[in-house]
Design a protein around this nucleic acid. Sequence first.
DNA 1: GACAAAGAAAACATCAGATGTTTACTATCA
DNA 2: TGATAGTAAACATCTGATGTTTTCTTTGTC
Lengths: 252, 252
Amino acid sequence: MSELLYYDLKDSAGVAPGLATQVCRELGRRIVAGHFPEGSLIDDENKLCTRFGVSKSVVREAIKLLVGKGLLEVRRGSGTRVRRRASWNLLDDDVLAWHQGIEPKPEFLRQLMDVRQMVEPNAAGWAAQTATPEQIEDIRKAQHDMEQATSIQDFVVADALFHRSVLRAANNEVLIALEGVIFSALLSSIKVTNSDPRKNERSLPLHRQVLKAIEAHDSEAASSAMREHLADTYERLSGALPDFNATRGASE
Amino acid sequence: MSELLYYDLKDSAGVAPGLATQVCRELGRRIVAGHFPEGSLIDDENKLCTRFGVSKSVVREAIKLLVGKGLLEVRRGSGTRVRRRASWNLLDDDVLAWHQGIEPKPEFLRQLMDVRQMVEPNAAGWAAQTATPEQIEDIRKAQHDMEQATSIQDFVVADALFHRSVLRAANNEVLIALEGVIFSALLSSIKVTNSDPRKNERSLPLHRQVLKAIEAHDSEAASSAMREHLADTYERLSGALPDFNATRGASE
DNA sequence: GACAAAGAAAACATCAGATGTTTACTATCA
DNA sequence: TGATAGTAAACATCTGATGTTTTCTTTGTC
């Protein structure tokens, strides 16, 4: 359900997927869920054919999709194995979406949040410098939708679109590749804290502050408002998840 | 040549690639080089078969590899088209390597450097907090290799490994997914400035400073030394490339 | 002339089977 | 014990047939 929401945010749905895509998803989900140790062999083509009830070409194409995402590695004559997690295209939309299909791991969520804290204040600052009027309008609309949201889901979607709009307004295509990190962290956070995000009375004012600063082209203010917002989120997660920053350095 | 060096840094070589991988590379390179407008159709399967002299299954698997990386989108009955650049997995190793095969675009290089400036000071700071003795040893070795390098290539490789070691020492797997950004920016920078990087007399001392700070678990010092190093690089690029930060906001 | 329906063509999807190559394992023999 | 030859397993490639979806064209009617 959260996986579907992720795809909604990325507009990745649309057409009915072919068999190769379905097999790819199924395998991808299992890999992401940790059903295979790193470096272990998966079933050979024949077994996959019978297991999924499809022909060899479908299985081979599904495997190629996963190879493209860095999850699998094929060695002729030897077999197909799961690559080290460090080699995965972790920021691939599908890979992140598949992560939404499993119970969020506190460690991974913390890493996502650390990256958000690194990325988004900068993005907000750059957005204040380079955003076009249309991009500012997108941010404004998302902020407005947050204010007006009547359901949790509407609120979360508007929240995500707010952050996406800010990121895009920074006009850096490498940065945009990190969009998925934001969605993924946001969705996992909602799931983990298990409370109505609208109850957070600091959220809306801080979003408003970010918007105002970007409208005013005040780079510093935009950065620090965003920083404060994320610090607030971080703190809530620390409270909700016992081992959220367990492995983090002692000082903090 | 620079593309090969990128692969060396990522240890992605090894086995002889099959036909599907070769076709994937060839197509991928052309797409990255901008031979196709966003959203345009590529040749159909039959044409690709005759052009590359391979069978349909090879072409289909090559296309699946590129679909996995977000470069292509296949619509049954309609054709296969190149996706918007914003949808590419820009951080995929192959995609970044293919970028090394073309003339570096100042705009793109600047975006990579902006991301490096955002990422690496933080990474150095985290590394100072969480690096294991082995990870510190890796950084030390890379620094040592930089000092001892007798050729430009050796120096560049050691430099890249230094930054990689720092990034990895931050112990954040999402961050590690950004490794390619560093390599890509580094290689493009060398190519663009077109001078012996060892001639930069600030480079070695600053790397040394980063190492010392991480060894001393001094997060702040590690961050700022890295920040200074990247600012220095940024400045050199501005000098070497006329339109390096042309599209950047006026204030800076 | 406009519009809707039928038909044809183009392009991808899937299946089946044959053959080749590489790798890994095993049995044999000196 | 160690090298070698043989065998099996697994992926790679080719070919050809058939199905489905989309798009375009043609046709016919109002």
